Amino acid sequence: MSNDIAYPVFRTTDLALALSTARSLMEFGRCEYSEVSAYAEFHSFAEVRRAAKELPGAWFQGQAEYAEFDGVPWEQQPPLAVGVQGPALPADPAAYEGRLPVECRLSDQPVGSIEDAFAAAIGTNMGCINWETLSWPDAPEAGFHGESKHAEVTLLFNSRTRELDEPAGDHTVLVHVRSAVFDGRQTREPYAHWLAGQAGLTVIGPGQRT
């Protein structure tokens, strides 16, 4: 089993520039089966309702405790707790008590189908767009074979970490490669530098693992 490591290659406060830069890098590895997913966390009733109008196809799920589902039939479980698409979200603010932050997901979508709408809906909230099942090419001059399993590009909104555990006032683009450690050194890091260079970018920080 192998894992990936993601290197930051671009950072800006300009959301449109961050999205266009991430797309340029993604296009370098895009293939016919590439997909895109997105995730965000919304911390208020107003923000959830606004996002639901802008992203009607997204799934929204609030916080819940496992114990509250014990013995409760599926049809009687709170919709917000089990997850619903935007149009089915409760309109009563009381339904959101104890459920915030609400997570929003769009998974395994065609490339180009959700990115603009999601970026427009994110606001000041933390979230990400992840382009996956890409195919990085060989880099014979750098001594590296291509990569498919761990070929991804991530755009972080209002955060600098993949865990979205600390807000930031800017947006960061990450390029993913296979994690391969030898003698305490990431031997695939030069490949990340090479990939970044193909899009006119450069690695600007340490790799991030999940």
Rank of each mutant, 00 (worst) to 15 (best):
Gly83Val: 12
Tyr33Trp: 13
Gly62Val: 15
Tyr96Gln: 03
Phe60Gly: 00
Ala40Glu: 06
Gln76Arg: 02
Glu147Trp: 13
Phe28Asp: 03
Gly146Phe: 11
Gly62Leu: 13
Val153Gln: 07
Trp136Ala: 02
Leu25Arg: 05
Asp108His: 14
Arg105Asp: 06
Ser24Thr: 13
Asp92Val: 03
Lys149Asp: 09
Trp74Leu: 09
Glu115Asn: 01
Leu15Cys: 02
Leu17Lys: 11
Leu89His: 07
Gly29Ile: 12
Asp116Tyr: 11
Ala67Pro: 00
Met26Tyr: 08
Ser20Cys: 00
Phe42Arg: 00
Gly146Asn: 10
Val72Cys: 08
Asn125Lys: 01
Ser148His: 10
Pro87Glu: 13
Ala67Asp: 05
Thr154Cys: 08
Glu132Ile: 06
Ile129Asn: 03
Ile114Ser: 01
Ala95Lys: 03
Asp138Thr: 07
Ala95Trp: 11
Ala121Cys: 06
Ala64Leu: 14
Val82Pro: 02
Glu141His: 07
Pro140Thr: 11
Gly112Leu: 15
Asp116Phe: 12
Val153Pro: 03
Gln77Asp: 03
Trp74Met: 07
Asp92Phe: 09
Glu68Asn: 05
Leu25Trp: 13
His145Lys: 13
Ala121Arg: 01
Val36Phe: 04
Thr133Ile: 14
Ala119Glu: 13
His43Ala: 05
Ser107Tyr: 10
Phe42Cys: 00
Ala51Asp: 06
